[in-house]
Amino acid sequence: MRDTLPAMYDLINKAEWRSHEHCVAKLLPCLKDAVYEAENLLDEFTWYEKKVQVEGNASQSPFTDFFHTVIEGSFDEVNDVQSRLDHLSSMLDNLGLHGIAQRFDKLVRPETTSLPNETKIFGRAKELKQVLGLLGVPTCPKRKRTTSSIDASTRTSTKSRISSLPVLVIAGIGGVGKTTLAQHVCNHPRVRSHFDLIIWICVSDDFDVKRLTKEVIQSCTKKEGANDNLNSLQHALSNHVNNKRLLIVLDDMWDDSLKENGQCWKRFCAPFRNVQEGSMILVTTRCPNVTEGVRTMEHVIVEGLKDGVFWNFFKLCAFGSESSDNDPELERIAKEYFLN
Rank of each mutant, 00 (worst) to 15 (best):
R2V: 08
L5M: 13
L5Q: 09
I12G: 03
K14I: 00
S19N: 09
E21L: 02
L31N: 00
A34Q: 03
E37D: 12
E39A: 09
F45K: 00
T46V: 15
E55F: 06
D65S: 00
F66V: 06
I71Q: 02
N79V: 10
H87N: 12
L92H: 03
G96Y: 11
A101G: 10
A101K: 08
T113V: 03
T113D: 12
S114I: 06
N117L: 13
R124G: 00
K126H: 01
P141T: 14
K144N: 09
T146C: 15
S148G: 09
S149W: 10
S153A: 15
V176N: 01
T180Q: 07
A182H: 10
Q183Y: 05
H188N: 13
V191M: 04
H194A: 03
D208Y: 10
R211H: 14
Q218W: 05
C220Y: 05
K223R: 12
Q234V: 11
H235F: 15
N242L: 05
N243G: 09
K259T: 05
K266D: 07
T296E: 14
M297G: 06
I301V: 09
V302K: 00
E303Y: 06
E303L: 02
F310C: 14
F314L: 07
G320Q: 13
E322S: 12
R332H: 06
I333T: 08
E336H: 15
